[in-house]
Nucleic acid binder design. Structure first.
Lengths: 271, 271
DNA sequence: CGTGCCAGGTGCCCT
DNA sequence: AGGGCACTTGGCACG
């Protein structure tokens, strides 16, 4: 139950390793010279090169080059991986339906095949989300404005669910749209749609106010807000979630060995 | 100039391998039992588990589990990777500025370290993009409507650049917004902003029309369009780019060995 | 650099 | 399954 690695395997041996690894529900990495062809929502093809193919037991396929966070080609979870030897090449084909999409990776040379038994947690609690921002406001509604009283979250309207709905100190309905980071015109439009939708649900003549809560706003967004009579309250998500345990890591300093960048000063022998 | 792999290395040996690999500008994979902590735009922590860490020479860091296309944690390109041995663990730290973000992966056990010399093309031409849709229309403007005459692409307005601008058969200005796939309310809002912005640049009384070209629209988007007096022309990007070479792969059939899914019928020994 | 916007966006939750 | 939306969105092109 450990890592299995083949060096410069024959295509046939690589194929066997792939099959065995998937039977065991392991993640597989393949490195070698390959071409990549994709056809589905769009289409693309990629000429020969040495790249890293990752095949996950959930059906995900990733082709990574030496750059970028985004894989150069991929297949989403739920796809079906198949492998075969064709025309002297190891062909790994990943297919899914709805929409129909196909990814073909053809190796003319396989340098390494590894089967990795992945375990442990796969989800993380992320702090600083829009949800944290909402909680922050529910804990202290005055952050929106003095006298603001929250009435409902995710309140349904004809234009969709409103992040936070309530009333101001004079009883006027207030639509609050929450954004965890600086926003552009799209957010202003979104808030505007909610306000307009709610205006129609409310007795004629009742003014519905709209408040965009976000750390900051671009100029264009500000203009749009002004145009629509909406306002902006500068407020960012809390640095730490109120519900999260204090996980501040301390005593982890030191001068580690630099391995990825030669631009900095020479390290003075610390490791 | 080939793959370098260490099995169950000591932390110290793993560290050496990392340093050497980065000197050579290679991509590094590390598999082993680790914890992951991230702090930056948001924050997260992940308990012990066996996961795959990918370090790219461009500063990208990816932590992958056995599920999902999206890494469970990551650091974007431009980050600086550092490694050190601390408290009996191999710590890989990836840091960037603007915004300040830090990713720590701490291995209590390293099962495998590989240095992979990645080469070859890293970009693909994707067909079926919005650009292809625009070209399709420029080749045959009647696809928008009979008599439509394109005047400019990316025409600037106070609300941003308009995908395609032109005039209808009666000389009225027309704003065309292109979307490569089915769209929701956001696209309708976007088009509405452009039409409104252009209406102000044009002599009083001149009607500016807005056309959303997309394969289809959601109900909510349709309502919004009707509300704003905008129209929808159902049109999808061409299946193949007109400029792209015909790369249809043929003669690649056969009955490959299934390795990723046990739900299908038993394969009859073809390979 | 920030602003705006497309993307094979991905992923989540709701109806 | 489809719609609506958040996301450490990522990535690019333009001011």
């Amino acid at each position: 139950m450990s890592v299995t690695t083949l060096h410069r395997p024959t295509h046939r041996d690589a194929l066997s390793a792939l099959s065995a690894a998937f039977e065991r529900g392991e993640l597989v990495t393949v490195f070698g010279r390959c071409t990549v062809d994709y056809d589905g929502r769009a289409a693309s093809s990629l000429g020969p090169g040495d790249r890293l193919l990752i095949l996950k037991p959930d059906g995900t396929a990733l082709v990574h080059t030496d750059e970028q966070r985004t894989p150069v080609n991929w297949q989403p979870p739920g796809s079906e991986h198949r492998a075969a030897v064709r025309d002297g090449r190891l062909r790994v084909r990943s297919v899914r339906g709805n929409p129909d999409e196909r990814l073909d990776v053809r190796f003319e040379r396989v340098d390494q095949v590894s089967a990795l038994p992945v375990t442990g947690g796969r989800s993380v609690d992320v702090y600083g989300s829009e949800e944290d921002l909402r909680q922050e406001i529910l804990d202290d509604p005055d952050l929106v404005e003095p006298g603001f009283e929250p009435a409902a979250t995710e309140r349904q309207t004809a234009a969709g669910p409103v992040d936070l709905f309530g009333h101001d100190d004079e009883g006027r309905p207030v639509v609050v749209e929450l954004k965890r980071r600086r926003v552009g015109p799209d957010a202003a439009g979104q808030l505007g749609r909610y306000v307009e939708a709610l205006s129609r649900e409310v007795p004629d003549g009742t003014e519905v106010r709209g408040v965009l809560v976000a750390p900051s706003v671009t100029d264009r967004a500000r203009e749009l807000l002004a145009e629509k009579g909406l306002s902006h309250v500068p407020l960012a998500p809390p640095a730490e979630s109120s519900t999260a345990a204090d996980t501040a890591a301390s005593g982890d300093g030191g001068e580690p060995t630099t391995v990825g960048d030669s631009s900095s000063e020479p390290e003075d022998g610390a490791d």
